[in-house]
């Protein structure tokens, strides 16, 4: 199996964002076939000290080694993806993600996440979102931590 070296991740240009949340609506359309956004969206825009901030998965793959059933894998495209048919809903990935990139909706037990599909980018009329390519080796992290001295 050929290992992916590059992955597309979302880049956010805060100065261009107007807070319209069209990105969230587009995202919830992808994951739940609804334009509710909010907890049904893998991308989240929040206002923090007058500035907009994006909360979304950065594809670093910390969650891969958390999954007891192997439901989270890095695809050929480099994107970290959760197979909801294999997932047993334990929420370990949700709890362990250091920046809330793994999402959980009340609608179903299995979490969901950004798959770098670009729907939000298309939905943003201000050009505040962009998909950029990064080297996986540069962003990859592992959950396991060394013993503290």
């Amino acid at each position: 199996m050929k290992k992916a070296k590059i992955v597309k991740i979302l880049k956010f240009h805060t100065e261009m964002c107007n807070g319209c949340l069209e990105c969230e609506k587009a995202c919830s359309q992808v994951h739940f076939k609804t334009d509710e956004g909010g907890e049904k969206s893998a991308i989240q825009i929040i206002k923090n000290k007058g500035l907009y901030k994006m909360i979304v998965c950065n594809q670093n793959g910390l969650c891969i080694d958390m999954c007891p059933v192997g439901a989270i894998t890095r695809r050929k495209t480099g994107v970290v993806s959760l197979d909801k048919n294999t997932c047993i809903g334990c929420q370990a990935c949700v709890g362990f993600c250091p920046f809330d990139g793994m999402k959980k909706s009340e609608e179903r037990i299995e979490p969901f996440k950004c798959i770098s599909c670009g729907s939000c980018v298309k939905a943003c009329s201000e050009g505040a979102l962009e998909l950029i390519e990064v080297k996986i080796d540069d962003i990859k992290e592992v959950v396991y931590h060394k013993q503290e001295a």
Binding site: C67, P68, C90, G95, V143
Partner: peptide
């Protein structure tokens, strides 16, 4: 190292 070592699913 780096294996989810729970004896039941979801034990982090």
């Amino acid at each position: 190292k780096i294996i989810p070592d729970g004896c039941w699913h979801g034990c982090s």
